[in-house]
Design a protein around this nucleic acid. Sequence first.
DNA 1: AAATAAGCCTATCGACTTAATCGACATTAC
DNA 2: GTAATGTCGATTAAGTCGATAGGCTTATTT
Lengths: 148, 148
Amino acid sequence: MISQKAKYALRALIDLAEASHDDPVQISDIAASQDIPRKFLEQILLDLKHQGLVASRRGKAGGYILLRAPEAITFGEVLRIIDGPLAPLPCLSKTAYHRCVDCKDEAACQIRRVFAGAADATRGVLDKATIADAMGDAGRAGAATVLA
Amino acid sequence: MISQKAKYALRALIDLAEASHDDPVQISDIAASQDIPRKFLEQILLDLKHQGLVASRRGKAGGYILLRAPEAITFGEVLRIIDGPLAPLPCLSKTAYHRCVDCKDEAACQIRRVFAGAADATRGVLDKATIADAMGDAGRAGAATVLA
DNA sequence: AAATAAGCCTATCGACTTAATCGACATTAC
DNA sequence: GTAATGTCGATTAAGTCGATAGGCTTATTT
């Protein structure tokens, strides 16, 4: 299960992607239209800013804009920022590898071999699906970036 | 990330599968050979028993046995018992569906469409991989039950 | 320059979950 | 009947999750 925070982050990014690119969108507007607690969204957008996905302007008429094309932001990237590694085991993460605390011999780990397949499958989907895929009206083909 | 408890459960089942099927294996033996806290393993095996994966005998010379062939116990089933639904969103679970709390229109949910692909991919792997796939020595072909 | 409107940032909260432990009880073998 | 074993509920300490609070900084407006 992905966290509520990750859902909020994705929805906020989709919201930003769908907004006119001319001027920044305010936190409160996103919060209102996506029904996200204002202060919580503040933290989320700050995270996304620190990771280079969005930029902000302060002061009156400030707000947020997307820093990249919606096609260039994947679900996988957002989930890693908010929820941490996608991998089912720490020793299978490409982006945040570390040994399982109780692991004696990684190469011989019986569980690891199976989960490696699961990790690849998940990454295959989430690192290909983008904010752009989630935009627009329901019926759109291409939305389901299936497994090839 | 799967829980420590789920890792223990899988390792315990593999241990049981690799033991001689003649007489029951004691909790303490599994705990020792797999390096799992004894009392914690007790709870885990009880869960697995309640779900019909293993059977137990009490009293002296008691212990646990597998109730099914290792080929007939999937990783997915074990994970669902210990960690709950595999699906990334509650509204995508086949075994424990329920609406997201804040969901207005499920069919139109932009996020859901993408995660549906991820859920299928994960299930595709974990509902095919079995305890038998994880048994035996490292090099074994077939261990990687890849995506087809 | 003061007032106001926005984002920035850190701390804190209560509820829940996780990993683990404890202790009393029930059952079986010998 | 005693020792060995599984059963089961309660408890704990630490961590996470979702959310809120409040002061700070920056920019605009008047």
